[in-house]
Design a protein around this nucleic acid. Structure first.
Length: 98
DNA sequence: TTTGCGGCAGGCC
DNA sequence: CGGCCTGCCGCAA
């Protein structure tokens, strides 16, 4: 199974209302410093909507980028119950742990 | 808080 | 097959 396959699968473990970070996701699949690689895979997400790539944010707490626009990403998160304040995650407890 | 540079998979020569 | 470039990051300075 390709790495990206594992990444998407891993991401499906993140429940609605919670998020994860690029770094954590990278490590979850065996990459020590593959945050950027993860972001790239998300960007080219072959399974839009099915894979909740909008639940992946930066370790700093900032929302991070999104192929369809950061606003869309933020709205989707808010709609799932993840509050965002000025581009930042309002509640750090919402970060899912693998 | 902003800046710079390291690190990684995948696609394209 | 090898090298170069890109891209939703991370962290130290």
């Amino acid at each position: 199974m390709k790495l990206e396959e594992r990444v998407y699968k891993k991401l499906l473990e993140v429940p609605k209302g919670k998020v994860t970070t690029y770094g954590d996701l990278a490590k979850a699949v065996g990459l020590k410093n593959g945050q950027r690689a993860i972001g790239r895979m998300m960007n080219k997400n072959p399974y839009p909507v099915i894979v909740p790539c909008h639940r992946v944010i930066m370790s700093s707490g900032r929302v991070g980028g999104y192929a369809w626009g950061e606003e869309i990403k933020t709205n989707m998160l808010e709609r799932e119950g993840v509050r965002i304040r000025n581009g930042r995650l309002a509640n750090p407890d919402l970060i899912h742990r693998f």
